[in-house]
Write a protein that binds this DNA or RNA. Structure first.
Lengths: 356, 356
DNA sequence: TTGTAAGCGTTATCAG
DNA sequence: CTGATAACGCTTACAA
């Protein structure tokens, strides 16, 4: 009963060659090996059901063939899509994908970075952490850690705005938000509310900025009483709905820009609960174009980010960096707005809200 | 410019002790080390910013502290939730989580198993593969591989029905489907359609079986013309909607059991497109209780599976198995039905469908 | 073209 | 309590 996995030594022995030769065959080295011995080794390996030990190989080679993706929460559809893209590319190049949930907590983030350093991960992809907060003490350690990881030769890529020293591919949050707001303005809306993301999260602030810019460019002064706090989750949208419902009628906006789709879903649900009719009573748009965006009622107007593609691009950049074949440092990833039923012209919006 | 990570040898040197001693301190061994030397080592390690190499450690220890989770698609909310649970437990015990998308393709599954064997993954969690198909040639190789992995000492846990030799924790699909169908019957529905999952997927068939059983127990003969092919995705639901819409009025069911929530979403969307009013024209239920189930209009009646908890349980079982502290082989995970607005009494269903 | 042997960074065994 | 040394399984100079 041989429960032990055979090693390359066993293969060599069985094939009647040296370990070096066996290794050269098994590792797909370019080193010349005669056809005859090659066959012998291959045969022995097959018979022993030899499986190379990646751990040993990695230890020797100083590269693990592991790529990690740091996300806030892998069950959040946004991150899930990105991770999917990463995994696709990683897998097709013989890399394994490690998933790390940080919950946007610098402590967890740091802890994971530490572990990934221990494992000598070859690549690390950040997405959706990106805090504006420089005051948090862990941020310094994170910066430190990142530099250390890079010095080791590992590649780091950011898929969201980050004030860290690393190559990045960033969705055009500002542009998308600007376009989306312009679209609402074109529909005739002027009182447009905004449900924010978590405090200090850069992506959220970029979208806010795009919204503000579009208003200003149209000669409208952004009204901070139309800003509602959200958290990128459904709950935040629901809370915003409750607040909107409390607003005296004349203070109500005719449209709301939710900082991401998840928030928009919560907002729509909440307004529904409060008896609002959508989109007649209010127009709503989100950001991200999650798969559910077209399925909700009414279908959600939003900005599309090809998340899976973003993930793929991120992984590809990692691979390029590992081969020192990438010089560009900052790339922008396009966003395009998707017009659906949740936004209608202001003229068609119910001005008389007695129904509510 | 020392770009090389310091090793334990460097720490030992700096602390003026042997590598053995340094290792004993750093690895948290129970081996006695005098307080003084311990301090010295710790200090040296800190000054050098020493990071233990997990690869080397794993190679030596013959365990990698890697747990893999095999899913159909990590962006599918069902799998995403499970993976989240796995990651939580894994991380809190110092394990990394590897995500593997199999797309329910035996070839990809096999390829991943191979790689995981190469990496000496300590635990592998299967979820949502589970084909009834024994005829596919890869299945034999997969069985083989699994046995080999287990012989190596790695733990394997299935979170969905599977005809493989491994411990499992299975959601009560049959019971949940039975209860859900009974509920529809209690509401007075008798013509209840069923949208299936992908062919040969065991979970889907279990749900179908529960549905059939409930009908039979109520003296109703299951009518195969009310079976519509689905694929666990929105698209399948949309196709079923189109087919329902084609049905002559008198042949239409008054309720539909969609094999999972995703399918139900597609179905609802499709019916909407075709001008059906929900739930007045037809009652719908899903299975799984995804986060979006309560957000769609009307809110979806479904069977709840605590997916994150399921993932946690799976990871915990892996850990227990690795310590040979688990004897139970088959566990069932409860499902509970959640009644929402998408299902109404048959009496309230529009019999006159002129509106359509 | 093949083989020998050193070494990747740890930990465990065995002597002191 | 501490230290030298042999593994773990693999790759790669360097020799032959």
């Amino acid at each position: 009963m041989t429960s032990e996995s055979p090693s390359i030594v066993d293969v060599a022995k069985k094939a009647g060659v040296s370990v070096a030769t066996a290794s050269r065959v098994m590792s797909g080295s370019t080193y010349p090996v005669s056809e005859g011995t090659r066959e012998k080794v291959l045969l022995a390996a097959r018979e022993l059901r030899y499986v190379p030990n990646s751990l040993a190989r990695s230890l020797k080679a100083q590269r693990s063939k592991l790529i990690a993706v740091l996300v806030g929460d892998n069950a959040d559809p946004y991150f899930a899509q990105v991770a999917r893209g990463v995994e696709e590319v990683a897998n097709s190049h013989g890399y394994l994908t490690i998933i790390c949930n940080t919950e946007r907590d610098p402590i967890r983030e740091l802890s994971y970075l530490q572990t990934l350093q221990d494992y000598r991960a070859d690549g690390i992809i950040f997405t959706g952490s990106g805090s504006d907060e420089t005051s948090v003490p862990e941020q310094l350690e994170i910066d430190d850690m990142i530099e250390k990881i890079q010095r080791r030769g590992a590649a780091i890529v950011m898929l969201s705005p980050h004030n860290l020293q690393a190559p990045s591919i960033q969705p055009d949050n500002l542009g998308g938000a600007y376009e989306l707001t312009r679209y609402l303005l074109e529909l005739g809306h002027t009182r447009i509310a905004f449900v924010t993301g978590p405090a200090n999260v850069t992506v959220a602030n970029q979208r806010l900025q795009g919204y503000r810019q579009a208003l200003t460019d149209s000669g409208i002064t952004p009204d901070d009483t139309l800003l509602f706090p959200g958290n990128f989750a459904q709950a935040g949208g629901e809370r915003a709905a409750a607040m909107l419902d409390q607003l005296p009628r004349e203070k109500r906006p005719s449209a709301v820009f939710a900082c991401n789709d998840e928030t928009a879903f919560g907002l729509m649900y909440g307004l529904h609960q409060h008896g609002w009719r959508l989109p007649e009573d209010i127009s709503i748009c989100g950001f991200g174009n999650l798969p559910m965006a077209r399925m909700v009622t009414p279908a959600l107007t939003t900005a599309n980010i090809s998340l899976r593609e973003l993930g793929r691009a991120g992984a590809q950049k990692i691979l390029a960096l590992l081969q020192h074949q990438d010089t560009t440092v900052q790339e922008t990833f396009p966003t395009t707005i998707v017009k659906r039923a949740s936004t209608i012209p202001f003229a068609h919006t119910t001005s008389d809200m007695d129904n509510k």
